[in-house]
Amino acid sequence: MAHQNHGLQMLTANRLRDGDVLYRKGDGWVLMLGEGEVYPDQGSAEAALAAANAELTRNEFVAPYLFEVRDVNGKIKPVKEREIIRAAGPTVHPHTGKQAGQS
């Protein structure tokens, strides 16, 4: 997927022990998309992905991949519906996923 991206990107994965969605920040991970790191160019995005792939042997997370985001009036939002839903939770069950408890 990475080679198709040309704009802003972020890196996501799932936590191994519970499957929770993670977003890369620095050398670690955070739970909310809004707190994750945005990579402004392909080089920095691919470097982050390579670093994450190298950390897979730590068995803390699985399936890292890059996805496109855009800046909407100063707020970072995923380009694709898939990542919007992944970041928030199922649109049909607002009490579940990361949207739970958010206003």
Binding site: L16, V21, V62, A63, G89
Partner: peptide, 21 residues
């Protein structure tokens, strides 16, 4: 590894989906 584990978990009905297992 995840590559080794994935076929084992699938044979036991466990998927990794969009939000969780």
């Amino acid at each position: 590894t995840e590559d080794q584990f994935k076929p084992l978990r699938l044979m036991n009905g466990l998927y990794l989906q969009l939000h969780a297992y």
